[in-house]
Amino acid sequence: MRNVAHFNLPARLLHWTMAVMILVMLFIGVAMVTSVAHYHALLALHQPLGIGILILAALRLVNRWRSPPPKLPVELPGWQRKAAHASHILLYGLMLGLPFVGWAMLSAAGYPIGLGGAVVLPPILPRDPSLYAWLRPLHTILAYALFGIILAHLGAALMHGLIRRDGVFSSMAPHPIR
């Protein structure tokens, strides 16, 4: 295996922490909207977890800007390079956008957004059910989109790690192997 530069430690920590958080979040979200028995318990997890993801995504963007990721291997076909680039823009957009849409839609619905204890987030939109009626389905559509892109990302990462073995996977591995 060739020696390829790694993502820095904060990037790897953030990636794997957020990978778990986002997957858990998507599963909570999809279960929550149909569940009767566990609706409230799942909602109580969903809100603080979403704000946690928003904060970590912002930190991650800052880290990425200060410490740019390693370059993709030169032998990677152009279309794959473009797909990788586009999917990462979408991933970042959704990691930041989904929590914001969630926060905005709950503001429009007039729900207090509790993060545990007496901590309640301020609304970021005026109370307006017609706005909520737009944002609520948007939140769902974006969540499905994020799940789809994560599946593509997972498949592509494993292609790099198991088949191409070009160092792209190990650049983000928790314990990089040379």
Binding site: S35, V36, A37, Y39, H40, A41, A109, A133
Partner: peptide
Amino acid sequence: SARSAAYAQSFA
């Protein structure tokens, strides 16, 4: 939890 869930659905 059921009331919470059904009210949310009705509201949406």
